[in-house]
């Protein structure tokens, strides 16, 4: 399938979901749909760097929360349309990605990972001390009652997130099959050899770090309106980092499908567990699934499927 066809398919999916949405009367569906789409976006963004290039980012929460808090700040100043907030969020998180990448990507991947882990902590300290966006006591936002085209605002947020998620998946698939994608695979497998065969490794790593960070920032920008109250502990929740790593690894990190499968599966599991068991047990399930998969099925569900197919 060409990239254009795939993109059109994505567009068709959005339209189909929008039409289906006309029939939905229960707000909860949009709330849940938003969560799924948000995780598809985050997992896909993480996978650009993690799955394709093999560089593990533990700082998803930092990039995500930065998008959310920049959005709070800009909204307080100008109250621009949501799209502007999303772009500003992307810009801010992309810039942080660029700075982090520039400083640490020359070293082995593990040092980049440790730096991202520390980034999450420092970003939380910054936001906690940033009184303008509520500091440690958090920020309240008035969620508009209706979306710009009728329907509730949550419904509108859901479509916005859906468009971004589908866009990210289409982008990931384009990258995967492009020259960049092959270069990233070379970096993941053997960076030194890739470099010896003409792959500009540092430039490619920087490019996807910025792109990945920017997408995470975009995912965070609508969050303040979705939750209506945002405080540092919830915005920087470790669950974001764990989920965005667990999802691609469980689905299969070397393809665009992996994060999508992982995101849908894990959000479904968590929504169910949240209702039936406790929220702590819920996190336990994610952690256990993740460790089990990376230990026993390093290529995730997609890898298992490929294994079954090649044996058949």
């Amino acid at each position: 399938m060409t990239n254009l066809r795939f993109g059109l398919l994505g567009l068709a999916l959005i339209v189909a979901l929008w039409l289906a949405g006309r029939l939905v009367t229960n707000e909860y569906v949009f709330f849940a749909g938003y969560a799924v789409a948000q995780y598809i976006l985050l997992a896909t963004a993480w996978n650009l760097l993690g799955g394709y290039a093999g560089y593990v980012n533990f700082g998803t929460a930092a990039f995500f929360a930065l998008g959310a808090y920049v959005s709070v700040a800009v909204n307080k100043l100008f109250e621009p349309p949501l799209i502007v907030l999303i772009l500003v969020g992307a810009l801010a998180s992309g810039a942080v990605g660029l700075a982090m990448g520039y400083l640490t990507l020359k070293l082995r991947g593990v040092f980049f990972s440790i730096a991202t882990l520390a980034l999450a902590i420092v970003a939380q300290a910054v936001v906690t001390n940033w009184e303008f966006v509520g500091g440690s006591s958090g920020a309240y936002l008035l969620r508009p009652t209706a979306g710009p085209w009728g329907g509730s605002y949550v419904e509108y947020l859901f479509y916005v997130m859906l468009v971004m998620a589908v866009g990210a998946v289409v982008l990931a698939r384009c990258i995967e099959r492009s020259k960049i994608g092959f270069g990233l695979a070379a970096i993941r497998d053997d960076e030194l050899v890739g470099e010896a065969y003409g792959v500009p490794t540092l430039r490619l790593k920087l490019l996807v770090t910025v792109l990945s960070g920017a997408l995470m920032g975009m995912a965070g920008a609508p969050l303040p309106f979705y939750v209506a109250y945002l405080d540092p502990p919830s915005a920087f929740n470790l669950a974001y980092a764990v989920n965005t790593i667990a999802m691609p690894l469980i689905g299969g990190a070397s393809t665009w499908v992996g994060p999508v499968i992982g995101a849908v599966l894990l959000t479904a599991v968590q929504e169910t567990a949240m209702v039936t068991i406790s929220s702590a047990a819920n996190l336990m399930i994610v952690g256990l699934l993740m460790v089990l998969f990376i230990s026993l099925a390093p290529n995730g569900i997609m890898g298992l499927l490929r294994g079954v197919r090649s044996r058949a």
């Binding site: 993690g50 593990v56 460790v291």
Partner: peptide
Amino acid sequence: ASLQGLAFFFGVLFITEVGLVL
């Protein structure tokens, strides 16, 4: 060891923490 190993220890960290809470 690199990608999977890091994610493994991160998962162990998370399990340990949640296990303590539980």
